[in-house]
């Protein structure tokens, strides 16, 4: 089987190198090339990574839901692909939650400077928090509901229900949080250098997320392989 064999390791190494390079270039662009934003000053620079993390968090959760969909639609028909879909689900959810933590830490840091408060129940903040909590629950399921078929199935189901849930939460918090201050998003991205720095940051975080997901996926496949070997040993020893 050799799921974590030399090929996937080499892909992981290649991804790491590219992600590290892009991150360095993005940091350089953000701090040495992109000009200071006129009204927000240095604190605006946190947005390059804050927004990058937010976009990639949603992407990760999207892939997690997709993996759940694949897992439940192939059901018991193809063991190998079910295992892969399941591993993709864990990997993307964990990376997504990590990115969510970055979003929810960098956001208040900036809000404290710009709005004078750590947190407001602004719709976009509330939505990010709810999606983050939803996938924390997914990870709790993975950790405590067992890694048998039941545990995997219920986790996959939750990730799929996340799609309509995000839609409804979005609508509800939008109307609910009507009177809160409006965020001036990307108000300062008028300079071309800023736009390049922004694009580079989003791409760098994307590659970082891809690298981490890939490495986590490799580990999960190894773990599944090990589980099978244990079962095999059990069978042979009767």
């Amino acid at each position: 089987m050799g799921k974590g064999g030399p090929v996937s390791a080499r892909i992981g190494f290649g991804l790491t190198v590219v992600a590290a390079g892009l991150l360095t270039a993005a940091l350089y662009m953000v701090f040495f090339v992109a000009p200071l934003e006129a009204t927000l000053g240095i604190s605006q620079k946190i947005f390059y990574f804050h927004v990058g993390a937010a976009i990639n968090m949603l992407l990760s959760f999207g892939f997690c839901a997709l993996a759940g969909l694949v897992y439940l639609s192939i059901g018991g028909m193809n063991r190998r692909w079910a295992d892969i879909a399941d591993a993709v689900g864990v990997a993307t959810a964990e990376v997504g939650v990590t990115l969510g933590a970055i979003v929810l830490i960098t956001g208040p840091l900036w809000a404290r400077k710009a709005w004078g408060t750590w947190w407001t129940w602004e719709p976009r903040l509330t939505l990010s928090l709810m999606v983050f909590l939803l996938f924390l629950a997914y990870l709790a399921l993975r950790a405590f509901a067992g890694s048998d078929r039941f545990g995997r199935g219920v986790a996959a189901g939750l990730s799929i229900l996340g799609i309509p849930a995000v839609y409804f939460i979005h609508f509800a918090v939008d109307r609910w949080g009507g009177a809160h201050p409006q965020v001036v998003y990307k108000g300062g991205l008028t300079q071309p250098e800023m736009r390049i720095a922004f694009g580079l940051s989003v791409a760098a975080v994307f590659l970082l997320a891809t690298t981490l997901s890939w490495l986590r996926l490799t580990i999960e496949r190894e773990r599944q392989h090990l589980d099978e070997l244990y079962l095999e040993v059990d069978r042979r020893l009767g």
Partner: peptide
């Protein structure tokens, strides 16, 4: 509740 409450928020 860990699983259902985020879905119940709306």
């Amino acid at each position: 509740p860990l699983v259902t409450y985020p879905l119940f928020v709306p």
